[in-house]
Design a protein around this nucleic acid. Structure first.
Lengths: 208, 208
DNA sequence: GTCTATATGCTGATAGAC
DNA sequence: GTCTATCAGCATATAGAC
């Protein structure tokens, strides 16, 4: 049935199935709690096939993490000097909220890694993220010096935007339970984006 | 040596040692990854003693969670109508930041539970927290209707304060790495409290 | 209360038939 | 490439000596 049907395609499909299943299992059970068997079951493949594609559990986890970091990278949005503070911050918040609602699993994997000490992500933070934060902080400093926005600690501001936007992905179960809802709806992205944009721009002295 | 030295005291001390060790292990290794042996080693007790006091691993975890929820309850601070919005919000932020910096482990255990689907905390959220949020939202609504603060969605505001304050506990490894620091210092509590209080009060239209 | 020894079950990983 | 069978190792939990 499935034989000789574009051999590379089977491989690609299996790998994607495995990575999706692994993401779910690692979130729900943790690294140690997720078993190769449970990942295989969730992917609808025999355990041996999973180990055929990835050799061992650690490799699966690394692949999931790599996927996650790529999403972080793409979803981070950007803060560009020529936009001016108001437009730049709005763009940035919009990108982060969209990423939270569209890729909550990536956000959760990432959050658990950090909470558990960031063993696998220390290098990423030490090089890439530290550099990114410093660059963007410089842009904020320029805007502040030019009187384009209020005197607000840029690094704290970046952490505030990260935490408020990611919260909707990482803590979705708490938020939904408290609001007595089963799932997020399309409106929620807009509502959250508008609330955060308004509130944060006001905090930066960029609105009324 | 240790024998007949206030038998109840030995029990209390052992239990506290075990709970502290368990907290560390559950954070670093997850529920499944933390073994009774590793908890015992970290507590400086033989494995059998740990199981003598708690019977099984799940009971240890429940005890850690209970401790965590008690801290959440004590550390939540309060929002009281008679304080007026400015003082009430400032008190609330101060309490949450203090709790984050003083009990980062409790915050992390709590965060991991929520991220993993809040299996053990759904009831807590459904009853206690939902009620708490609704009560406090009502107080905010009064203030807004009386023109004491800007029209800001109260529930979103509570989530924003939770996320920004907890972030410093849960994501400490990322924050410290990015800022190229080894540990938080005493000044940091003050700095973060001041930044968040200023910023959030401004967001609520309660400052310049 | 403290600790050793052990039973039982599950997990990661491999070997090898198809 | 796919899948079955299997092994060696480890984890929980208990039994029972001290």
């Amino acid at each position: 049935m499935k034989k000789n049907n574009k051999p590379q395609k089977v491989r690609a499909i299996s790998i994607e199935k495995i990575l999706n299943a692994a993401q779910d299992e690692f979130i729900l059970q943790g690294y140690k709690g997720a078993t190769v068997q449970s990942i295989a079951d969730s992917a609808g493949l025999p355990k041996a096939n999973v180990l055929y594609y990835f050799k061992n559990k650690e490799n699966i986890y690394h692949a999931v993490l790599e996927q996650t970091l790529n999403m972080w990278d793409e979803g981070i949005g950007d803060i560009e000097a020529h936009d001016g503070p108001k437009v730049a911050i709005e763009k940035f918040i919009r990108a982060k909220v969209a990423m939270s609602f569209n890729n909550p699993k990536a956000s959760k994997i990432y959050a658990m890694e950090i909470i558990q000490g960031a063993q696998h992500l220390k290098d990423f933070a030490r090089t890439y993220q530290r550099q990114w934060v410093r660059e963007k902080a410089k842009i904020f400093k320029c805007w502040i010096d030019n009187g384009e926005m209020k005197q607000v600690d840029p690094v704290s501001l970046i952490f505030l935007i990260w935490s408020t936007t990611q919260h909707y992905a990482d803590f979705d179960s708490q938020i939904l339970t408290i609001m007595n809802r089963a799932d997020y709806e399309d409106d929620d992205i807009e509502h959250v984006t508008n609330f955060l944009t308004d509130f944060i721009l006001r905090g930066c002295g960029l609105k009324q």
